[in-house]
Design a protein around this nucleic acid. Structure first.
Length: 219
DNA sequence: ACATTAATTGTGT
DNA sequence: ACACAATTAATGT
């Protein structure tokens, strides 16, 4: 098979990062039809109600996935990271329905987007692709059950702790630039309540506080 | 360097 | 939940 230099490059890059996920054929397919995209931080990628016509494959960076309720309040669902794809998107695409979620880049993101028309035939043709999709569904479902469990059964304080942990993990930094109001939005709570919890966590020595920032010490 | 203003955070009811 | 006080950061003079 003949490749353009750009495709050669792409194959090299994807094989390096994804060889344990996909076999050769799938990687070639991805390079043929996939398009590489760079997204700056804090960019809205998909909004609620948008028609989605591509499937993202994250190379680096983090994407925040959330829903919106009738009152327009947001709730953080989960993050997408390296090697992830969006299970919700797969659903939307194959059923030709509109997005039920909003996706915003948390950091700068590098990704490959694949037009949806290829997904069906790949499912049939390539076992490693099939496994990838199913695996992605499975792990996301488990995460969601976890998150639901957390909301229903755990106190807001525990949710804040978990939130901070996640944030530290995805930014690879113990110093977070975030306001109490931001956290309140993500957790579907109010600023005042978050402030009180933050103060408590600081007193207990878990974090240290500053205006617009906090430092993770331990949990 | 100082004053003004806006944004964020703290606290009592 | 609301209101307001206190604190801090940003901006202009």
């Amino acid at each position: 098979m003949i490749h353009t230099p750009a495709q050669e490059n792409c194959i090299k890059e994807i094989s390096e990062q994804f060889h344990y996920l996909f076999d050769e054929e799938v990687i070639e397919e991805i390079c043929k039809v996939g398009e590489r995209k760079s997204i700056p931080a804090d960019e809205m990628i998909i909004d609620v109600g948008d028609r989605v016509n591509f499937l993202p494959l994250i190379l680096s960076g983090t994407i925040k996935i959330m829903t919106e309720d009738k009152q327009g309040d947001e709730l953080l669902l989960y993050y997408l990271e390296f090697g992830d794809t969006c299970a919700v998107t797969i659903n939307c695409c194959t059923r030709q329905s509109k997005s039920s979620i909003r996706a915003i880049s948390e950091t700068a993101v590098e990704m490959i987007v694949i037009p949806i028309e290829y997904l069906d035939s790949w499912m049939a043709k390539h076992q490693s692709w099939r496994n990838f999709i199913l695996e992605s569904y499975n792990s996301r479902l488990n995460e969601m059950i976890d998150a639901l469990d957390n909301i229903v059964f755990n106190s807001l304080e525990d949710r804040v702790k978990k939130y901070i942990k996640e944030k530290v993990y995805i930014t690879r930094s113990e110093d977070l630039d975030i306001t109490h109001a931001d956290i309140a939005n993500d957790l579907h709570s109010s600023r005042v309540v978050i402030s009180r919890i933050m103060k408590k966590l600081e007193k207990e020595g878990y974090i240290s506080l500053g205006r617009g920032k906090l430092k993770y010490l331990r949990l």
